[in-house]
Structure formats: C-alpha cells, structure tokens
Design a protein around this nucleic acid. Structure first.
Length: 424
DNA sequence: AATCCGGGGAG
DNA sequence: CTCCCAGGATT
C-alpha cells in the first residue's frame, strides 16, 4: 500500500516542479496526515489526480513534502531549541570545533561545564596551541576519551605551525587535521560556515534512518543513504539551523527508545513514524560481549602528596596522570599486581598499608575493576629516581589530568580535595 | 570491517 | 545491578 502511494519512491517528481518559493503545502503536516495516508480512499486517487492528492494527503519522500517538512523542522527548532552555550548568533569555527569534539560520545549536559571552562582558558586556537598538552588534558579530566583532547590540541598546533590565520574553511582541510573526521568536518562547515555539508552524527543517523526506513543506517553502506536523505531535506540557505535542528530533534524528540512522534515536525515524511515502528530503525548492530578485567594500582603518600605517573604508552589513558597501575593477570592476586606496578616505577617493593575500595568503570566492551592498594616506600626513595613518576600535591589533584576512575579512587583516600574542578 | 578509546544516563 | 549510547584512529 505504501508503494502505491509513492512513499519511499524517491525522484518520483522532479525537483524543478516544486519551486522553493511556494509553501502552499503546509496542510501536508497536519496531525490528520497519518490517518489520511493509511485510508484506502487515498489509493483510489492515484493516477492523473495523484499529484493533487499528494499535496493534500502529504506523505511522500519526494521533493515537495520535503520542503514543507524542512520548514516545519526549522520552525520547530526555532521554538524548541535548548539554549546551549555554544549556540550563539555568530559561530566561531574554533568554538564550533571545541563543542563538537566534546559532544562526540558525550551528552550535552556532561559537556556544558567542560565547554565553559575550556573556552575561558583557551578562548582561541592560538591560546590552545600555546598551552601544554597536559593542561589541555587536565581541563578534559573526567570527560573521557582523552584522545579527543590530545588530538584537538595537536590540531591547534598544526594550524598555528602552518601559519594559517585560523582553521581551514573547507572539508578537506579540516579532515586533514587530527581528530577531525567526516562528522566533525561537516559540523564545522555547516554550523560555522553555513555550508551544505552533511553533519551526520548518531542522532542524525537515527532520525533519517527512521524518515526513510533505512535499516542499515549505521553501517558504511547505510551512511550514504543517510547522507542522501540529509541533502534531500536540506534547505537552500539555513544550513546552520537545519544541521543543528536534525541533531536537536534526535536528542530531544526522536530518541532511541521513546520517540515522541506526535510532536515531531518530520512526522508527515517519516516512513517509520507513519508505520508506527520508529524504534525499529536503525537496526542496532550486535554489540560485542562484555569482558571483565581487573587492574590494580599503588597509592603512595608523600608529604601531603601522592605518587603519580604520566601514562606514556598508547592506549588507555595516554598522556594522563595516574597511580602506578597494572592489569591483574590470570590467577594473580590484585595485590600482587599492585606490587608489580609499583616495582616497575620505583624499582622497590613497597610495604602494604591497606586496600582501598575498588572502583568500577566501563571501557567500551570491557568492564574494569580497579583495585587500589596503599603502600609505603622507604624514606630514602625520591620521585626523581624514576623519570616518569612525580609527587603531586593533594591540593593540585583538582586540576590534574586524572582519568575519572583514578580520581574516584583518590577521592576515597584523600577526600573531596581530590575531586575534579570540572564536574562532580 | 572490526576494534579500541571512558564515561554517564535510563530503567 | 543491566542495558544502551557514540566519532575517530588504527589495523
């Protein structure tokens, strides 16, 4: 039946037949539309009167209803958008980049305080490039995926080193910078430069997969279909608002498990919504099994300080400060792993003082349990004996580049003095 | 195409 | 507790 109505058949009507200046199709997104489309009577109107019938009954994913749906989307965004600190009248490409990188794998509420602190400390690309990586990581501490901060810092340095006055204003130039992939490059082009550049994040994949009933939305092949949908629905000029509206819609209305289709501005063109099975799209990829792993770390007190090590190896927590840590091997006691970690850094076997409560956190498909053990070291030992180790004053922990799990362990031992300045 | 990078929110 | 979510780099 849906095929009879032309739904989902793209290119059914030529773009030229629907001048964008005409907006007489507002009826097509009335609340009645969904009921009308499913009524058998509509089918009987196909044929020579089909065009007329569609303009009244609405739903089709060919060009004309897209225009009105886009207009509805933009109107909805004007009325419903959340006031967020990066949503200012004029968009600085650098600030767009900062906010978009922070919003990767991170929800808005978590990113806001970090964004405010970041742009206060690093108001420009030049300010960021002039800072140490450690300071950038410290401001990111607690936000997770610290590689984002390292790459953002590296991108700032790359731009400044190139002698350019600012970020590239083209997709290819942006893509060449570390940490900027297809999504972030598109977001900068659309949000800061108002260009017709698809900015397709997880929210947009979900929204447009539902609009076109695309099952493979998240896959490489499906991504091209999502991109085509993005371009098809795009307005002529208001690219900034459009790009952001799609993401906002996914974040607030077209949610993963409980979409509020009744209030959705795209409901007249959304195939999944019309069918009433929006949550069936996109088909989620099967998630890998979770593996439980255990790590142990050594907590050593100095003079109102704690022994920390900069993680130099690629992988988990690169560049961050943490207590000496080792993965607990099979059949190994966590305490022995902590001894091993301390030995690797100091060359000494500490004396065990006590165990601190374990900390649990998740790393993609791993569920990590961190076992902190407190040790004492001989008085003659100094941190300078080990290049990677350093004493960090307790009063400095708040502004130290600590990963969240390590910070939680330190908070249990040192109290709120160890709590981060960014959040919590 | 699969895997790895940390967190947090919802239920 | 469990389940779910998500860009970019690397291989």
């Amino acid at each position: 039946m849906l095929r009879l109505l032309g739904i989902g058949v793209r290119g059914l009507e030529p773009r030229a037949s629907w001048p964008p200046s005409r907006h007489s199709t507002k009826l097509s997104y009335t609340p009645l539309a969904r009921g009308i489309i499913l009524h058998p009577m509509v089918i009987s109107t196909s044929g020579s009167a089909a065009k007329h019938a569609q303009s009244r009954s609405g739903p089709t994913n060919s060009e004309r209803p897209s225009r009105s749906a886009t207009a509805a989307l933009l109107a909805w965004f004007r009325a419903s958008r959340r006031p967020l600190p990066w949503r200012t009248a004029w968009r600085d490409p650098y600030r767009v980049l900062v906010s978009e990188v922070m919003l990767q794998q991170t929800q808005v509420a978590a990113a806001v305080p970090y964004y405010l602190r970041w742009v206060e400390r690093f108001p420009t690309l030049e300010a960021l490039a002039a800072a140490d990586e450690a300071e950038a990581l410290a401001l990111w501490s607690g936000l997770g995926y610290y590689g984002r901060a390292r790459r953002l810092h590296a991108a700032a340095r790359a731009v400044v080193a190139s002698g350019s006055p600012g970020l590239p204003a083209d997709l290819a130039g942006l893509r060449a910078l570390p940490g900027i992939g297809p999504y972030t490059a598109g977001a900068v082009m659309a949000l800061a430069h108002n260009q017709r550049a698809p900015a397709i994040d997880g929210n947009v994949i979900r929204v447009l997969s539902r609009v076109d009933a695309l099952e493979e939305g998240g896959k490489a092949a499906g991504l091209r279909s999502v991109e085509a949908a993005w371009l098809r629905l795009a307005p002529r000029r208001a690219m900034r608002h459009y790009a952001e509206a799609l993401m906002e819609l996914g974040a607030t209305v077209c949610s993963p498990t409980g979409p509020d289709c009744g209030r959705c501005p795209l409901k007249v063109v959304c195939l999944a919504g019309i069918r009433g099975n929006a949550t069936a799209y996109p088909v989620p990829s099967k998630r890998p099994a979770v593996t439980a792993v255990a790590h142990a770390c050594a907590l050593v007190r100095g003079d109102d300080a704690v022994l920390l090590v900069r993680q130099t190896e690629a992988g988990l927590w690169q560049g961050m400060l943490e207590m000496p840590r080792a993965e607990v091997q099979a059949a190994e006691a966590p305490q022995d792993a902590a001894v091993r970690a301390l030995l690797a850094v100091t060359g000494l076997r500490g004396d065990l003082i006590r165990a601190w409560p374990t900390v649990r956190h998740s790393v993609t498909r791993y569920r990590v349990t961190l076992h902190p053990f407190e040790f004492s070291l001989p008085d003659r030992w100094r941190a300078s004996d080990a290049l990677e180790a350093q004493w960090v004053r307790v009063s400095s922990l708040a502004s130290a580049p600590l990963p969240a799990a390590q910070r939680r362990a330190l908070v249990s031992a040192f109290g709120s003095a160890a709590r981060g300045a960014n959040a919590g």
